[in-house]
């Protein structure tokens, strides 16, 4: 059954329509990569999924919560949907452990011990157990991004969204973050990734969606989509220098 259901979603910034009626579904445990040019609406679509961008028309259902243009029920939805950003956005005034413990404690009402246990567990999951007392400013970009992933995981979300999480990293640091994502995928997490890492999308994502001018232009199983693109736009995109 579908964990994510998007129906006819439209989104505009003023006169500029960024999403022109997007529909898609994601099954439980599925890993879906969203690719496309800058400005194709892929990041916007992801941000709409947890209500960071209000939509003008259509309907979004994620993990049993429904979002429409009224924006009600937002906080309940966000408890079940984690998002990781390109720029990590760790809280600089809190140590790594506190960064992770904050939301479980104040949003879910976990005890300090329970929140601490979640922090230890999710940090171990991203391979940074020893950094629990570190300050965010003292982490490398790759480490900061893995902490951001752990922070999201500590809420025990049903769906994880990744918005170009390796785009701000030096090439030698992207590997460690991608390995973390791959581990999550193998553990059965439902994931949507906006990415420019085509090789990664092809290898790890079960399905890839190509967005073009605010619409889903082509989609299919990753291997098939990358090896035999059906539309001229996707062929051009894949051969057109964007690695």
């Amino acid at each position: 059954m579908s964990v994510v259901r998007v129906e006819g979603v439209r989104k505009s910034y003023g006169a500029l329509e960024v999403l022109k009626g997007v529909s898609m579904q994601v099954e439980r445990g599925e890993v879906v990569a969203i690719i496309g040019r800058s400005g194709s609406g892929k990041s916007t679509l992801l941000r709409c999924l947890n209500g960071l961008e209000p939509i003008q028309a259509g309907r979004i259902e994620v993990a049993g919560h429904t979002l429409d243009s009224t924006g009600k029920g937002l906080r309940d939805l966000r408890k079940d949907v984690g998002i990781v950003f390109q720029s990590y956005n760790l809280f600089p005034h809190l140590k790594v452990g506190e960064n992770i413990m904050l939301a479980p404690r104040v949003v879910l009402g976990c005890s300090r011990a329970e929140a601490r246990a979640r922090a230890e567990q999710t940090l171990a999951q991203v391979g940074l157990a020893e950094k629990i007392e570190a300050w965010p400013d003292n982490l490398s970009g790759g480490q900061a991004q893995r902490v951001a992933i752990a922070r999201s995981l500590a809420m025990q979300p049903k769906v994880m969204l990744f918005d170009e999480v390796t785009s701000a990293l030096d090439p030698e640091l992207t590997g460690e973050v991608l390995a973390t994502l791959e581990g999550l995928a193998q553990a059965g997490m439902t994931m949507l990734l906006v990415t420019h890492e085509m090789a990664f999308a092809r290898r790890v994502a079960h399905r890839t969606v190509f967005m073009h001018q605010g619409l889903l232009h082509e989609e299919g199983p990753s291997e098939a989509l990358f090896s035999a693109p059906q539309t001229a736009e996707l062929r051009q995109f894949l051969s057109g220098g964007l690695k």
Binding site: R78, L102, A103, V107, R151
Partner: peptide, 8 residues
């Protein structure tokens, strides 16, 4: 944005 995404 990051704190809103964590449902605060």
């Amino acid at each position: 944005e990051a704190s809103a995404a964590l449902a605060l």
